[in-house]
Protein backbone atom coordinates (compact mmCIF):
# COMPACT_ATOMS: atom_id res chain seq x y z
CA UNK A 1 0.00 0.00 0.00
CA UNK A 2 1.89 3.06 -1.33
CA UNK A 3 0.25 5.34 1.20
CA UNK A 4 1.21 3.18 4.18
CA UNK A 5 4.28 5.37 4.54
CA UNK A 6 3.80 8.94 3.21
CA UNK A 7 7.09 10.82 3.32
CA UNK A 8 7.12 14.33 4.76
CA UNK A 9 7.90 17.12 2.31
CA UNK A 10 11.57 18.17 2.28
CA UNK A 11 13.68 21.25 1.46
CA UNK A 12 11.31 23.86 2.83
CA UNK A 13 12.42 27.42 2.11
CA UNK A 14 10.93 30.91 1.86
CA UNK A 15 11.55 33.26 -1.06
CA UNK A 16 10.50 36.80 -0.17
CA UNK A 17 10.61 39.74 -2.54
CA UNK A 18 8.84 43.08 -2.08
CA UNK A 19 6.93 41.76 0.90
CA UNK A 20 5.52 38.76 -1.05
CA UNK A 21 6.52 35.65 0.84
CA UNK A 22 6.48 32.31 -0.98
CA UNK A 23 7.07 29.07 0.91
CA UNK A 24 8.32 26.24 -1.34
CA UNK A 25 9.25 22.58 -0.78
CA UNK A 26 10.17 19.49 -2.76
CA UNK A 27 7.02 17.71 -3.94
CA UNK A 28 6.17 14.24 -2.63
CA UNK A 29 5.83 12.14 -5.77
CA UNK A 30 3.69 8.99 -5.76
CA UNK A 31 3.10 7.70 -9.30
CA UNK A 32 -0.52 7.92 -10.30
CA UNK A 33 -1.54 9.70 -7.09
CA UNK A 34 -2.40 13.35 -6.32
CA UNK A 35 -0.76 14.47 -3.12
CA UNK A 36 -2.12 17.50 -1.28
CA UNK A 37 -0.33 19.62 1.29
CA UNK A 38 -1.37 21.46 4.46
CA UNK A 39 0.61 24.50 5.53
CA UNK A 40 0.53 25.93 9.06
CA UNK A 41 2.31 28.81 10.80
CA UNK A 42 2.98 30.18 14.26
CA UNK A 43 4.37 33.57 15.16
CA UNK A 44 6.88 34.25 17.89
CA UNK A 45 4.04 34.72 20.37
CA UNK A 46 2.63 31.28 19.73
CA UNK A 47 6.04 29.64 19.82
CA UNK A 48 6.94 31.36 23.10
CA UNK A 49 3.62 31.20 24.97
CA UNK A 50 1.69 28.30 23.43
CA UNK A 51 4.01 26.24 21.27
CA UNK A 52 1.38 23.57 20.63
CA UNK A 53 -0.71 26.13 18.70
CA UNK A 54 -0.30 26.17 14.91
CA UNK A 55 -2.57 28.20 12.63
CA UNK A 56 -3.74 26.91 9.21
CA UNK A 57 -2.40 29.07 6.38
CA UNK A 58 -4.91 31.33 4.70
CA UNK A 59 -4.51 29.86 1.21
CA UNK A 60 -2.92 26.44 1.56
CA UNK A 61 -5.01 24.24 3.77
CA UNK A 62 -4.96 22.28 1.53
CA UNK A 63 -3.05 23.06 -1.64
CA UNK A 64 -1.93 20.91 -4.55
CA UNK A 65 1.30 22.57 -5.69
CA UNK A 66 4.62 22.42 -3.80
CA UNK A 67 4.42 26.11 -2.86
CA UNK A 68 2.31 28.46 -0.78
CA UNK A 69 1.90 32.25 -0.68
CA UNK A 70 2.08 32.97 3.04
CA UNK A 71 2.05 36.76 2.66
CA UNK A 72 -1.35 37.15 4.36
CA UNK A 73 -0.23 34.98 7.27
CA UNK A 74 2.93 36.91 8.13
CA UNK A 75 1.38 39.99 9.75
CA UNK A 76 4.02 41.12 12.23
CA UNK A 77 7.73 41.83 12.05
CA UNK A 78 8.70 38.89 14.26
CA UNK A 79 10.10 35.41 13.45
CA UNK A 80 7.51 32.93 12.14
CA UNK A 81 7.72 29.13 12.10
CA UNK A 82 6.19 27.39 9.09
CA UNK A 83 5.46 23.69 8.56
CA UNK A 84 4.05 21.47 5.81
CA UNK A 85 2.42 18.03 5.82
CA UNK A 86 1.55 15.87 2.79
CA UNK A 87 -1.79 14.09 2.60
CA UNK A 88 -3.18 11.37 0.38
CA UNK A 89 -6.74 10.41 1.05
CA UNK A 90 -6.92 9.82 4.79
CA UNK A 91 -3.15 9.40 5.11
CA UNK A 92 -1.02 12.29 6.38
CA UNK A 93 2.73 12.53 6.55
CA UNK A 94 4.70 13.88 9.49
CA UNK A 95 5.13 17.64 9.63
CA UNK A 96 8.20 19.17 8.07
CA UNK A 97 9.20 22.47 9.70
CA UNK A 98 11.20 25.33 8.16
CA UNK A 99 14.74 25.06 9.51
CA UNK A 100 15.10 28.75 10.39
CA UNK A 101 12.14 30.95 11.37
CA UNK A 102 11.24 33.56 8.75
CA UNK A 103 11.05 37.30 9.52
CA UNK A 104 9.53 39.63 6.94
CA UNK A 105 12.22 42.21 7.54
CA UNK A 106 14.50 39.97 5.46
CA UNK A 107 12.44 40.50 2.31
CA UNK A 108 14.36 41.61 -0.78
CA UNK A 109 13.32 45.09 -1.90
CA UNK A 110 13.89 45.71 -5.60
CA UNK A 111 14.05 49.17 -7.18
CA UNK A 112 10.58 50.00 -8.52
CA UNK A 113 9.77 49.75 -12.21
CA UNK A 114 8.67 53.13 -13.47
CA UNK A 115 7.61 54.83 -16.69
CA UNK A 116 8.64 58.44 -17.25
CA UNK A 117 6.73 60.24 -20.00
CA UNK A 118 5.94 63.78 -21.11
CA UNK A 119 2.59 65.18 -22.06
CA UNK A 120 3.00 68.58 -23.58
CA UNK A 121 5.20 70.40 -21.06
CA UNK A 122 4.26 68.05 -18.21
CA UNK A 123 6.77 65.55 -16.79
CA UNK A 124 4.76 62.47 -15.75
CA UNK A 125 5.78 59.34 -13.85
CA UNK A 126 3.94 56.10 -13.23
CA UNK A 127 5.44 53.71 -10.68
CA UNK A 128 4.44 50.04 -10.54
CA UNK A 129 1.77 49.16 -7.97
CA UNK A 130 3.37 46.95 -5.30
CA UNK A 131 0.49 46.98 -2.84
CA UNK A 132 -0.66 49.02 0.16
CA UNK A 133 2.50 48.57 2.22
CA UNK A 134 4.62 50.45 -0.33
CA UNK A 135 5.33 54.15 -0.73
CA UNK A 136 7.72 55.65 -3.23
CA UNK A 137 10.28 58.39 -3.06
CA UNK A 138 10.71 60.02 -6.48
CA UNK A 139 13.75 62.23 -7.10
CA UNK A 140 13.85 64.48 -10.20
CA UNK A 141 16.17 67.21 -11.39
CA UNK A 142 17.15 69.29 -14.40
CA UNK A 143 20.29 67.88 -16.06
CA UNK A 144 22.42 71.00 -15.80
CA UNK A 145 25.27 72.07 -13.55
CA UNK A 146 24.28 72.81 -9.98
CA UNK A 147 20.74 71.63 -10.48
CA UNK A 148 18.80 70.96 -7.31
CA UNK A 149 17.23 67.51 -6.74
CA UNK A 150 13.51 67.64 -5.93
CA UNK A 151 11.88 64.88 -3.89
CA UNK A 152 8.23 63.88 -4.17
CA UNK A 153 6.51 61.26 -2.02
CA UNK A 154 4.14 59.11 -4.06
CA UNK A 155 1.83 57.24 -1.72
CA UNK A 156 0.72 54.52 -4.12
CA UNK A 157 1.74 53.14 -7.47
CA UNK A 158 -0.30 52.23 -10.48
CA UNK A 159 -1.46 55.69 -11.56
CA UNK A 160 0.39 58.42 -13.46
CA UNK A 161 1.49 61.42 -11.42
CA UNK A 162 2.62 64.79 -12.70
CA UNK A 163 5.98 65.84 -11.34
CA UNK A 164 6.82 69.15 -12.99
CA UNK A 165 6.00 71.56 -15.76
CA UNK A 166 9.09 71.44 -17.96
CA UNK A 167 11.00 74.21 -19.70
CA UNK A 168 11.64 73.44 -23.39
CA UNK A 169 15.19 72.52 -24.34
CA UNK A 170 16.01 71.31 -20.80
CA UNK A 171 16.52 67.62 -19.96
CA UNK A 172 14.80 66.34 -16.86
CA UNK A 173 15.96 63.18 -15.07
CA UNK A 174 14.06 60.95 -12.65
CA UNK A 175 14.81 58.00 -10.35
CA UNK A 176 12.72 56.31 -7.65
CA UNK A 177 12.98 53.97 -4.65
CA UNK A 178 10.41 52.03 -2.61
CA UNK A 179 9.83 52.45 1.10
CA UNK A 180 8.09 49.90 3.40
CA UNK A 181 6.95 51.30 6.73
CA UNK A 182 6.19 47.91 8.29
CA UNK A 183 9.87 46.96 8.19
CA UNK A 184 11.34 50.46 8.00
CA UNK A 185 13.45 49.73 4.93
CA UNK A 186 14.11 51.25 1.49
CA UNK A 187 15.03 49.69 -1.85
CA UNK A 188 17.96 50.84 -3.94
CA UNK A 189 17.20 53.64 -6.39
CA UNK A 190 16.02 52.68 -9.85
CA UNK A 191 17.92 53.44 -13.03
CA UNK A 192 17.79 57.11 -14.00
CA UNK A 193 15.42 58.02 -16.84
CA UNK A 194 15.63 61.34 -18.65
CA UNK A 195 13.29 63.19 -21.01
CA UNK A 196 13.44 66.50 -22.82
CA UNK A 197 10.69 68.58 -24.42
CA UNK A 198 11.29 70.52 -27.62
CA UNK A 199 9.42 73.62 -28.76
CA UNK A 200 8.80 77.26 -27.83
CA UNK A 201 9.10 78.62 -24.37
CA UNK A 202 5.79 78.97 -22.41
CA UNK A 203 4.49 82.62 -22.12
CA UNK A 204 4.92 83.58 -18.45
Amino acid sequence: DTAAFLPAPQNLSVHSTNMKHLLTWSPVILPGETVYYFVEYQGEYESLYMSHIWIPSSWCSPTEGPECDVTDDITATVPYNLRVSATLGSQSSAWSTLKHPFNRNSTILTPPRMEVTKDGFHLVIEVEDLGPQFEFLVAYWRREPGAKEHIKEVRSGGSPVLLETMQPGVTYCVRAQTRVKAIRRYSAFSQVECVEVQGESLPL
Binding site: E44, T75, A76
Partner: peptide, 11 residues
Protein backbone atom coordinates in the same frame (compact mmCIF):
# COMPACT_ATOMS: atom_id res chain seq x y z
CA UNK B 1 -5.62 34.76 12.82
CA UNK B 2 -6.59 38.22 14.02
CA UNK B 3 -5.52 37.28 17.55
CA UNK B 4 -2.16 36.09 16.23
CA UNK B 5 -1.61 39.38 14.40
CA UNK B 6 -2.38 41.38 17.53
CA UNK B 7 -0.34 39.21 19.92
CA UNK B 8 2.71 39.07 17.67
CA UNK B 9 2.67 42.83 17.09
CA UNK B 10 2.32 43.46 20.83
CA UNK B 11 5.31 41.14 21.30
Amino acid sequence: KSFSTLANNFL
